[in-house]
């Protein structure tokens, strides 16, 4: 029981950092929360709503994303898009990710 719990915690920790990178990488075109969620899921990354929406708000607070409300089909939607600041750090994050992957690949081989 305790083992499954700690496994889940580690997996959660592992994914948490990746979600930021995933979200930033997908937001070069504007998306609203739910559409981003589906887009991530279509590509195989299942993210919980309870994780993604607060994360988007946080990234916006950090200035990495910008958002704007739009009225669509009589429904207001909040669209997010990567900011200039976000565009600046995205390549660095990608590079960091590639480094981690190559190191871990070797280590786990």
């Amino acid at each position: 029981m305790a083992n499954t719990e700690s496994l889940e915690n580690v997996v959660l920790e592992l994914r948490r950092g990746v979600i930021v990178l995933a979200a930033l990488s997908q937001l070069s075109a504007e998306q609203y929360g739910y559409s981003l969620l589906k887009q991530l899921s279509d590509q195989g990354l299942e993210v919980d709503q309870g994780t993604l929406y607060p994360l988007l708000r946080r990234l916006e607070g950090q200035g990495l994303l910008e958002s704007v409300w739009k009225l669509e089909e009589a429904r207001p939607r909040r669209y997010y898009i990567i900011s200039a600041e976000g565009k600046k750090i995205l390549p660095k994050l990608k590079k960091e990710w590639a480094d981690i992957v190559s190191v871990m690949k070797k280590m786990l081989a």
Partner: peptide
């Protein structure tokens, strides 16, 4: 925390779903 904003976003998400 931006309650109104969160409410609005949550409602629109739930309606979409």
């Amino acid at each position: 925390q931006g309650r109104e904003d969160i409410e609005k976003e949550l409602r629109s998400t739930l309606e979409d779903m």
